[in-house]
Amino acid sequence: MSEAPRILYCHCAYAQVVPEEVKAAVLHRLCASGVAFDAVADLCEMAARRDTTLQRLASGGAVKIAACFPRAVKGLFHQAGADLPADRVEVLNMRTLSAEAVCQSLEGGVLTPNLPVEKSPAALAAAASRTKP
């Protein structure tokens, strides 16, 4: 049986882009559940500092991340030199999902990977032209 994914919660402390009530409800429920989890004040701030903490958070197996848009979260970890394994990460977007939907997914344990993986046609073409002899 595969292990339940870890949980990482981002508090988005330095902006009001994640609705306050969603953040509060998700954190509340995580605390009440008794489950172990990692929480960070602000993934953006850590990525800007290339904080090695992100490498620790990216390693250690499957993880569900409650934060914002999957494309942004992928980019932030990459920029910090801590690539997330696309097949073992699900990002739950607290900017668009209800607290109930985020909590149900966190508690459900089933991981549905959702990081974007496809390169755009323009990026593929540019990469191909750079590798031409």
Binding site: R6, I7, L8, V35, A36, D38, A39, L57, S59, G60
Partner: peptide
């Protein structure tokens, strides 16, 4: 950055 360590679940290494 805070890790809540309890008897259920796993956290980053």
């Amino acid at each position: 950055a805070v890790t809540r360590a309890s008897l259920g679940g796993s956290v980053a290494p």
